[in-house]
């Protein structure tokens, strides 16, 4: 299932709507890298609230996504990682590295605006 990507001002917002396969995640990564160039976006927000699993593949793909977006001149913020998901990620030994996170969309927008100043 393709993740809808919305443009809002200088930012693009990808709001994941359902469980994603590995291929869906890779498609999202590539779509976002392309969108940043197309719309000359300054920031990307990925909302993962509905994901009930962030396994090693999802985590690596999100990290790659953020790195690709950065190389295209924009910032990425991941929002909505559920507390149970965060717990399982830590148990599994997964980390998002330097990828920015926020609790919700509002905080993510505030973070991007602050960093953009």
């Amino acid at each position: 299932m393709r993740v809808p990507i919305l443009k809002q001002g200088d930012y693009v917002i990808a709001s994941i709507q359902s469980a994603l396969t590995d291929d869906d995640l890779i498609q999202l990564r590539d779509d976002l890298a392309a969108h940043v160039g197309k719309y000359r976006s300054k920031g990307v927000i990925v909302d993962v609230t509905v994901l009930d699993v962030m396994d090693s593949f999802a985590t690596r793909t999100v990290r790659d996504l953020a790195q690709m977006v950065r190389l295209r001149g924009a910032r990425t913020v991941i929002v909505g990682i559920q507390p149970e998901v965060a717990f399982a990620m830590v148990q599994l030994g997964l980390e998002l590295g330097s990828v920015a996170t926020a609790l919700d969309l509002e905080e993510a927008l505030a973070l991007l605006r602050y960093e953009g100043q």
């Binding site: 009930d52 396994d55 593949f57 599994l92």
Partner: peptide, 26 residues
């Protein structure tokens, strides 16, 4: 996850089971 919930697992345990299954299936 569905089967785990049916037999009484809740919260973080459901996510841990689903995550482990995801890893071994991958």
């Amino acid at each position: 996850r569905t089967l785990a919930a049916k037999i009484g697992f809740t919260g973080a345990n459901l996510v841990m089971i689903a995550t482990a299954v995801s890893e071994v299936a991958r």
